[in-house]
Simulated scan of single mutants.
Amino acid sequence: MNYSAAYETSLACFQQTSIEEIAQFSGYPVLDHQIQVNFLGQQFTVEHPSGRFEPEPQLEGELPIFARILILHYLANKSPASENGKFISYKELPGGGIYIQPFTNRAIRPMIQFFGERPERLIDVAKPMGGLPAKLGDAGVTLKVFPKVPVTLVLWGADEEFSASGNILFDGSAPEFLPTEDYAVLASFVVMTLKKYGEQINSADR
């Protein structure tokens, strides 16, 4: 998929948002027009208004363009809302029920395929990225992907009757911060990142 047009649109929205608004609403520290971003364990500054990332990603795998679009979308958001502590699934997001099957294929199934046999590994892999255990399922973990956007991954291991299963949950305030389609991309990227770290740990253990 060509994300170039979406990137240009997200950059324009970011540039139309003042640095004062970003400092007020994003939850990120701002110093001299530099926004200090922690994104899934990666540290960046985003310069305003240029939208330049430092260090500038050198390889697409380090911070794909769609991840930069998500970051710019979040930084341009001006909602004063806060987390409400209520879990909702993707199908409970506005219009989410229509796209639940693609969401399941892109995010939930890969999570189950990689972590389903040993759900406890999900917590271990997420910890270096700031993941905190959640008391859900056989293993659950919450990642603050953005300061106001937690994502909770839940797994149930297989037993004699049922195969492994899982879900990805959001805070009830989620619609205030990003459009529904962004949460599909976000959840998929979270799972992809966890899988990559998990594979690195497996290789180091051999």
Rank of each mutant, 00 (worst) to 15 (best):
I98C: 10
M1H: 13
I22Y: 04
I65L: 15
V37A: 07
V30Q: 02
V37E: 07
P128T: 02
L40W: 08
Q43H: 09
Y90N: 05
A81F: 07
F114V: 08
M1W: 14
E8G: 12
N38D: 10
L194S: 14
R206S: 13
S26H: 03
L63W: 10
G85H: 06
S203P: 00
V149R: 04
P150K: 09
Y90K: 06
G97V: 04
P55C: 06
Q16F: 00
Q101C: 02
I201V: 10
T17V: 01
P175K: 02
H48V: 03
C13N: 13
F25H: 04
A23Q: 00
P29H: 07
I98S: 13
Y3D: 14
S188R: 03
H48Y: 05
Q113E: 08
M192G: 11
P110F: 01
E20A: 10
E181P: 01
P110W: 01
V185Q: 11
Q36G: 07
S165I: 08
I123Q: 06
I100T: 15
P110M: 01
K196Q: 14
T17N: 02
P147E: 02
A23V: 00
T180G: 07
E176W: 03
Q34D: 12
D32S: 09
I35H: 06
F162N: 14
A184S: 15
D182R: 01
A12Q: 14
F44R: 03
I69L: 05
Q101N: 13
F25Y: 03
L122W: 05
A5V: 12
P57I: 02
N84L: 12
A12T: 12
N84M: 11
K78L: 06
W156S: 09
N2V: 00
R206L: 14
F53Y: 11
L75F: 00
A174Y: 06
G41W: 08
K196D: 13
L75E: 00
L169G: 10
L59A: 13
N77K: 11
L132G: 07
P29T: 05
P179A: 11
T104A: 12
S82F: 14
A67I: 08
Y7C: 08
V151Y: 07
Q43T: 04
L59S: 07
A6Y: 09
V154E: 10
I65K: 15
N84K: 13
A184K: 11
K144I: 02
E83V: 13
Q58G: 13
E160G: 13
L194G: 12
G130Q: 12
N38M: 10
P150F: 08
G140N: 12
V154Q: 09
G172I: 01
I35M: 01
P175T: 01
E92F: 00
F146C: 14
A126W: 08
P29W: 05
L40I: 04
P119R: 03
N2S: 02
P102V: 01
G137L: 09
Q34T: 06
Y90V: 02
L132V: 14
F44A: 04
V190N: 01
S203D: 03
